[in-house]
Design a protein around this nucleic acid. Structure first.
Lengths: 245, 245
DNA sequence: AAAATTTGTGTAATTTCGACACATTAACAC
DNA sequence: GTGTTAATGTGTCGAAATTACACAAATTTT
């Protein structure tokens, strides 16, 4: 187990020069990739850019970049998201680290995937460099690097998370109808739900505030518009283990 | 966004020399830390070693080491576990990556935490270098690096996972009594469970095989011994979303 | 004015969950 | 070997949650 023969140890065998020790470790470039989900036209969407690597010409890529020296990866994820999209008011969750040796054609690069949900309406894309735009998740087939694998991992993560916490609200406008909410759950989980039972369940959660307003410009009877009760949810977060459908 | 002025781009602006591009990325030492849970004497245990860094004299540490060049981190985790303990027949799950800039006194080191559950009875510790041994999870207070944070994250991960999948069986001997199984769940979840309801629930899952044998050498009425039906579980894995207690 | 579409609502049957008590078995102490 | 102790093994009943299911009201379109 002594693989660092040149590392000095003290009288009881402990390593004193930890900086030198760390200097013997192999070093690897680290990137962060952001999987940004949105919801529009009853479809789950993902924000992608065109890869700027010649080997991946015409392939799409996640929003990623390398982590700076001494930068916490969470911070890197927020920085990269802000840089690529201009957005800075969304939360990001770390999902998983991907490390297959040949996942990057430029050599060994490890990437840490972060995931976020945001409301397409509220986040106009001001930066459109690299053809940044929304793609229907279902339509995504091939991607640069192992990004298809990453995106699929994040999708499964989302399916699970949305049943444990009412994250779906982050994907909807401030005011939304119950129909929109149900469409969201059906699209993400890939199932159909009974309308009455769905409404009953959300009513019993008591996380919706009736705005008193109605939908406008819909070609049928308008539904009530609700807001999500963020305060109440924050206050009772610890109780959340599951939303069963 | 052009932060690599020396990187050649082709006629349409795409980067051709990806190796050179990756060469411009900051490089970081990566380590893997294994959180190995066991269960004995009705307590959740964790396998720790004595830190061999002078700055952490008398502190305990997770089973970790750096990842080799071009080594997938999953492989590194299995390698390190095998190296530190001699064990190679346990599964490992990636839990989370920790990247706080000053988490390692020797400089910037990112670590990826892996978690495993194993049966203390079946894995005699043949390697006891660095004072490798089991510690009661509850008794762990201070640790080297940010390992207390890592271990707590893995504990929460375990609490959640054990309610989604019947992972607890990995912590028990091949043959176990229902009482042992219940003790395990109670210890990990930190709750007490009704014995009849607990047995009813597991009976309804139909994942236990009655071995026909009884406990030996217990100072009271012996209970039946069961085996876990791994085949059946593997076959119906996709159905598992939750075990509610 | 009629047709089409979607909203909004309640109940009954079923299933699941949670609380709860007592007889049985084996070891141990005497 | 008898009594004591400690844990196993089992069933029911009420409460709560889940599911299935139908019709009237509101609005736009034709």
């Amino acid at each position: 187990m002594k693989r660092e023969p040149d590392i000095h140890r003290n009288a009881v065998g402990l390593i004193k020069d930890v900086v030198k020790l760390v200097g013997t470790y192999p070093r690897v470039p680290i990137t962060v990739d952001c999987v940004i989900f949105g919801f529009d036209e009853n479809q789950l969407k993902v924000l992608l850019i065109r890869s700027d690597l010649a080997v991946y010409e015409d392939k799409w890529s996640l929003l990623g970049d390398f982590a700076e020296d001494n930068e916490e990866l969470d911070d890197a994820a927020y920085r990269i998201l802000k840089h690529r999209t201009g957005m800075d008011d969304v939360y990001l969750d770390q999902v998983r680290t991907f490390s297959r040796p040949n996942r990057h054609p430029g050599g060994r690069v490890i990437t840490v995937a972060y995931c976020s949900l945001l409301n397409i309406q509220h986040h106009e894309l001001k930066i459109t460099e690299n053809e940044l735009h929304w793609h229907s998740y279902q339509s995504i087939k091939e991607m640069a690097f192992d990004h298809k694998e990453i995106i699929d991992t994040c999708y499964k993560w989302l399916q699970k998370r949305i049943q444990e916490h009412p994250l779906g609200f982050n994907l909807l406008p401030d005011k939304f109808s119950l129909r929109e909410l149900q469409n969201l759950y059906e699209a993400i989980l890939g199932i159909t739900l009974d309308r009455r039972n769905f409404r009953k369940k959300f009513a019993s959660m008591d996380l919706l505030i009736d705005t008193g307003e109605m939908e406008q410009d819909v070609p049928h009877r308008p539904g009530k518009l609700y807001k999500f009760n963020f305060e109440k949810y924050e206050g009772s977060k610890r109780k959340w283990i599951g939303i069963d459908f």
